[in-house]
Design a protein around this nucleic acid. Structure first.
Lengths: 225, 225
DNA sequence: AAGTCAATAAATATCGATTTTATTACCAGG
DNA sequence: CCTGGTAATAAAATCGATATTTATTGACTT
């Protein structure tokens, strides 16, 4: 057997580490929307070289979390009500498309994956890893569409939305509504392969959250634009 | 006065130049799908440093034209029939969405922009810049949706599709069908603000081209996967 | 003969320093 | 007191070289 196989948690790479840190800092607001991102600052902050920082920032522009201004460096993407609303409306359209395809291709393996993802999410409520589990559940709903580009877009939009949750709620967990019941409904409908019901539940979930966030964003006046 | 002001078509920046060259080479097939992209090779090919090449490749991963394998470099994205079909179907869905929004927001300025874009495209048939003019016309149709993310996705998908046109036709211009008449129809319907007709014409345009390309791709057997 | 391991070669990732470009502060002329 | 231009400063972009990592080769064991 190989002498070292699992011994090494060896998935580092300065660039990837920088990418993950910066992404997290932007999503949670540690690096606020619109902020100038100076290489030298980030270099010392992350304790790494300029090349990995620069490359991580380039990768983040793909995710629309960073804007690159030629010859003038990088800045965290702006946040605005219009942007928030566009994200919400695109998510609704694209996720409905993906969910319908997923259900059309339904198999029992997919079903089981869904149930597991849902279970894990429920168990992690109020844990710091809830965010990841929540995303995993939502992506599991879509992954059976077998449409990698569409999945990628949905994942991107999901991430963009996270930032507004943090802006509105300061990263605090959820609101008064019974989120958990909404997830149960979505799972139930998906497992029954009832596309109409599943989409209705999913979109209602997004729209209710969206309306709540929009109200708070407006009240707190936290948008840069 | 500044010693050099306008004299220089000074929108270069080694990174941007490398980005544009590499993008073009991938779209036209000069760098074939799936090919390993070695930094050193590209560095000498483009006569620039390793940093700009690396950064350009990072940017191209956003466009899904390059794949990045951590610690193992970059390669040109794979091409496959499934990928081609996914692109076609997403384009149809997203462009319909965008076109309907554009028409819903129709103004005479937009209309005039469309007419101009269409005119320019017609004039450039069989010119090397036709490709750009064609894309400009298609994007002009969508730009009035005022949905930057959606526009970005449509633009990306448009570019991804170009590659398959080159694979199928060796970059040669169009086929037997009367492409020009199709464009006229789309323009006409858009100007009349008839969303249903415009979408029907646009999607038919894409689907006819798609079917033609799929047939040729199959016959030529040019797909790596 | 097939598979494993070690040594070598190739390529990537990263660093440190230099060059180029933008921004700021300052000063003279109107 | 404002305007336009210029020097000083700060930051970004790029280069050249080094350190790590992966891929390749060929000998060696079972």
């Amino acid at each position: 057997m190989n002498k070292m196989d699992d011994t090494r948690g060896r998935e580092t790479s300065a660039t990837r580490a920088a990418y993950l840190s910066l992404r997290d800092m932007i999503l949670t607001g540690a690096l606020p929307a619109g902020k100038k991102l100076k290489i030298e600052q980030l270099r010392t902050l992350l304790d790494t070289g300029a090349s990995p920082v620069r490359e991580a920032l380039s990768l983040l522009t793909s995710d629309m979390l960073v804007e690159r201004i030629d010859q003038r460096g990088f800045r965290a993407a702006e946040a605005s009500l219009a942007n928030f609303e566009e994200i919400l409306s695109l998510r609704c359209a694209l996720e409905e498309m993906a969910l319908r395809q997923s259900i059309a291709n339904a198999t029992s393996e997919w079903e089981e994956g869904l149930v597991v993802a849902h279970h894990r999410m429920k168990k992690l409520t109020d844990s710091p890893t809830f965010e990841d589990a929540h995303k995993s559940f939502h992506m599991a709903l879509l992954e059976n569409a077998n449409s990698p580009i569409l999945e990628r877009y949905c994942s991107q939009l999901y991430d963009l939305n996270i930032r507004y949750r943090y802006l509105a709620a300061g990263g605090e967990s959820y609101q008064s509504r019974d989120i958990s019941a909404e997830h149960d409904q979505i799972l139930e409908a998906a497992v029954q392969r009832d596309a109409d019901a599943a989409c209705a539940a999913l979109l209602s979930h997004y729209r209710l959250t969206g309306a709540y966030l929009a109200k708070r964003l407006d009240k707190l006046n936290v948008l840069t634009i």
